[in-house]
Design a binder for these strands. Sequence first.
DNA 1: GTCACGATTTGT
DNA 2: CAAATCGTGACG
Length: 165
Amino acid sequence: MTARVLPRSFYARPTVEVARSLLGQRLEFRGRGGRILEVEAYLPEGDEAAHAYRGRTERTEVLFGPPGHAYVFLAYGMHCCLNVVAEPEGVPGCVLIRAVEGVGDGPGKLTRALGITLEQNGWDLVSSPLRILHQPPPAHESITVTPRIGIRRSAQLPLRFVLET
DNA sequence: GTCACGATTTGT
DNA sequence: CAAATCGTGACG
């Protein structure tokens, strides 16, 4: 029953590699979900826009934990953003899920549509209702790379990946 | 304890 | 372009 769930090893890789690999995979939570269409990478080093850039704090603790867990934070006091923890344990890289098939663009609208809140922060994507399933890649697919959305620091880095089919 | 600041969205 | 809205992190 869990044969299609992506294994821990999928997440224990370089953040950019995980970000690109997540495109096309299926995010599911309590009966709702869809293929991941847009993601952004937040690097463990040299990335001033990453929450972990300032070091280990109470909020960023999950980022330093084992890969394959959800990092959910509240943006602008009203929108939850879902991230996937990457890299081996102790290395705080993560991937922001910005869009899923069947849901309007925007990380805040995505979590709202799937019912994901701060309660899901820290949940294990390998063994919880919040999970990502392997999905066969489409016949024709390509990945568009652009700078990330809505950040000021390290804004020039090409770390946003969009699946084009 | 206090305060400035957003990895957003929506309306003017 | 500006408001809404609140957890977090820095500072004292």
